[in-house]
Design a protein around this nucleic acid. Structure first.
Lengths: 231, 231
DNA sequence: CAGTGGTCTAGACCACACA
DNA sequence: GTGTGGTCTAGACCACTGC
């Protein structure tokens, strides 16, 4: 009878038992009823603890089969995806934004393929720079599907970036984010004050509203950027 | 009276109201009691829905102050961090592992600084390659704190990678992960069949056991690698 | 079919933060 | 102080899935 009773105490105890191999990887652990008796609490409390551990990728739960310690520890790490303005100001740096270019264009083939757009799809192409203390921090290359967001043609992007406008004005339901390393081409090198060929940490983002593509954006970060998380 | 009653229905309804600006960014939304009356369910059900939306970064909740729609949408994206073996085999490719080098060394200054190790700290330095269908997929450069893990000196890393050994043998409590873009130096270029100077997607990981550093690892991925998530 | 987790309820007390 | 969310309880029924 260990007699801990908050869900977070239970989480800690379970993690400790996994760490010290009381419950080794791949093993099945007692059911919720049994654990609630051991910990002297309600089953709902045990359930919350176990459910959260399963969300983190530590446990694997199946009805009837029971709860197992995950053998292949696919940990789930959470990363915060802030607004670029927030990301910059939260370091204490001053944020500045510049619109470099804004053009209505027929979507190029690679973009049509990427978003599943029809031939001759109209898009708005934007290029922007975000500065931290007047040092170029992020270059944003964005395409917006005008069919999905007709009002974007009359939007003014000279003072606020397209991301802030879109978040305020356009609802979305799905987002895909990817991270990669790319080479600085001439354009990116110029805007970010890099040499051509330097590695550039790049994130890409696509958003949809119920299956309908809204926007594709590629963000290229300045030298030395890294994305961190801890858990 | 909308009369939905499962916590996931409530989440959907709340998200829809945020999207259609019924509850615009920054606004305060009704309390749990009021919502449970509207949805015709128990407060605990509303609580779970709202708590999960807050975890995702959509809502901001404070006792007494109430629940607000987050004005600066710091969305939290979850990425799965699998074992490299799992990541490769899950694509259908064959996994192969090679130990390149294994040496006991005094920790270099940069590593001591990074991990907070004392002068003359003993470490085990490992270099490994992970292949997918015999194509080099990931180069692993790892340092293990021998003081924290004395048994590592007698471990055999010729058949299984150090990550798998560590997960099985050594408990940890904290992990820091970072992502960045680096340049391929001569060594990495050779192992990953790249050209010197090519961009390399890199992740670094440090793990601790209750404040005590266990290991530092840098993973360099082959050409074209990207990390994706969707939500 | 039966056992496990998944969810919900109605009620309660607590902790924090704003007024 | 007082209202909000944070958590817990004891019980119930349901849904999935392994046997």
């Amino acid at each position: 009878m260990t007699a801990k009773n908050s869900y977070s105490d239970i989480k800690k105890t379970v993690l400790a038992r996994i760490r010290d191999h009381t419950w080794p990887p791949g093993s099945i652990i007692p059911g919720e009823v049994e654990l609630s008796e051991e910990f002297g609490c309600a089953r709902a409390t045990v359930n919350r603890a176990m459910r959260e551990l399963a969300e983190d990728g530590i446990l694997d739960r199946k009805r009837k089969a029971g709860t197992r310690v995950n053998k292949f520890p696919i940990r789930h790490a959470k990363f915060a995806i802030p607004l670029i303005r927030t990301e910059i100001t939260s370091t204490g740096a001053a944020y500045r934004y510049t619109l470099i270019d804004k053009k209505s264009l027929t979507a190029p083939a690679w973009l049509r393929a990427r978003l599943g757009l029809p031939d001759n799809a109209k898009t708005l192409h934007l290029q922007c720079l975000h500065f931290a203390d007047n040092i170029p921090f992020q270059f944003e290359d964005r395409w917006i599907n005008i069919n999905a967001v007709p009002s974007v043609e009359h939007a003014d992007f000279t003072t606020d970036g397209p991301n802030e406008w879109l978040i305020k004005e356009v609802p979305f339901t799905d987002v895909e984010i990817s991270f990669s390393a790319r080479v600085a081409d001439k354009e990116i090198a110029e805007y970010l004050s890099l040499s051509v060929g330097e590695p550039v940490f790049t994130t890409e983002r696509i958003t949809w509203l119920s299956g309908n593509p809204i926007t594709f954006a590629r963000f290229s970060f300045g030298r030395g950027y890294s994305l961190k998380t801890r858990f």
